[in-house]
């Protein structure tokens, strides 16, 4: 299973009435965490379902761990290497935790009972409890424990941290970090909680109305982008090619700009027509800022 990328998606297209996932292409390199952000209905879950072969698609190629997901040849063995966690715990409510491992060892050829019980201990999940007796956080931990207890090399997480408190979320993010320390592992995580993505992701992928707006290295993104807070007149002096999003109200204009270095030091003064003008301010950006500004302006890099 030596492939250049953990996941390779080429020209993925899926059409619905009133929505279309348009020609999506991206790669998930090994040893990386890719954060997938976008507003509700942007196409995140559709993309993930397509990657997992959970919906028929019209066009495109999807390779997960080198396997062409759209081809039946080769069977379902590639799923052995794919750990999946959705936005809810998928184990039936009546099932006891102690029985989950007994079932999983017949579902996954590579199921590791010891690793699973290690995670149960770490997460303090009581063996005798039924799934329905667990809190939401515990249920998600159980799902993650199951996803990590076979030979999963690619973790695909669809809103897996949604609805959890910050303490549990941090604990779970730590586990994903540990997982990806192995260079033969990769994580693809979609979430509305952009602060989580910011903490863990190496790359950020932004989708809006079925179109991929951005796929960039997170550090470069945060380093290169900035928000200039200024007046409308000052904003008009910013070169168009640097503007990636704009937000105006009666008091202030905020402009998401690329190449923030250009605005540092004297760059901001160049926006001022006279020394009496209020001095513009250059702020750092967060992933949430980039999401909000770009989605609002539908700018494509």
């Amino acid at each position: 299973m030596i492939t250049q990328n953990a996941v390779d998606v080429k020209n993925l297209t899926k059409r619905y009435n009133g929505f279309c996932l348009k020609n999506i292409s991206f790669q998930i390199p090994w040893g990386c965490v890719v954060g997938f952000v976008g507003e509700n209905g942007a196409g995140k879950s559709t993309t993930i379902k397509a990657m997992l072969g959970l919906l028929p698609v019209e066009e495109g190629e999807i390779y997960v761990a080198g396997h062409n997901v759209r081809e039946e040849a080769g069977g379902d063995d590639w799923r052995e290497y794919t750990g999946v966690v959705f936005d809810e715990c998928n184990f039936p409510a009546e099932l006891r935790i102690k029985n989950i491992s007994k079932c999983m060892k017949y579902i996954f050829r590579t199921w590791d009972e010891q690793r699973f019980s290690g995670y149960l201990n770490r997460f303090e999940l009581p063996l005798n409890k039924k799934v329905k007796e667990l809190s939401k956080g515990m249920k998600m931990k159980l799902s993650i424990a199951a996803a990590l207890s076979h030979d999963s090399r690619i973790l695909i997480l669809d809103e897996a941290t949604g609805g959890l408190d910050p303490v549990v979320r941090n604990e779970i993010l730590d586990i994903f970090r540990e997982f990806v320390e192995d260079e033969q592992h990769a994580v693809f995580i979609s979430s509305h909680i952009t602060s989580d993505i910011e903490k863990i992701a190496d790359y950020i992928m932004l989708i809006h109305k079925g179109k991929l707006l951005l796929y960039e290295n997170k550090d470069e993104l945060i380093y290169n982008y900035g928000i200039v807070r200024c007046t409308g007149q000052q904003a008009a002096r910013i070169p168009e090619e640097l503007i990636k999003g704009k937000w105006e109200n009666a008091f202030e204009t905020s402009v998401l700009v690329k190449d923030r270095a250009l605005f540092e030091n004297d760059g901001l003064e160049a926006l001022m027509e006279s020394p009496r003008d209020a001095r513009p301010v250059l702020d750092k950006v967060t992933i949430e800022d980039i999401l909000v500004y770009m989605v609002k302006n539908e700018v494509q890099l």
Partner: peptide, 21 residues
């Protein structure tokens, strides 16, 4: 009914059991 309530069917298709299993 229980499978549908927690989307176990979706999850099981995403495992090596697959749709056929």
């Amino acid at each position: 009914s229980l499978d549908e309530a927690v989307h176990f069917d979706r999850w099981s298709i995403a495992t090596p059991a697959g749709a056929r299993g």
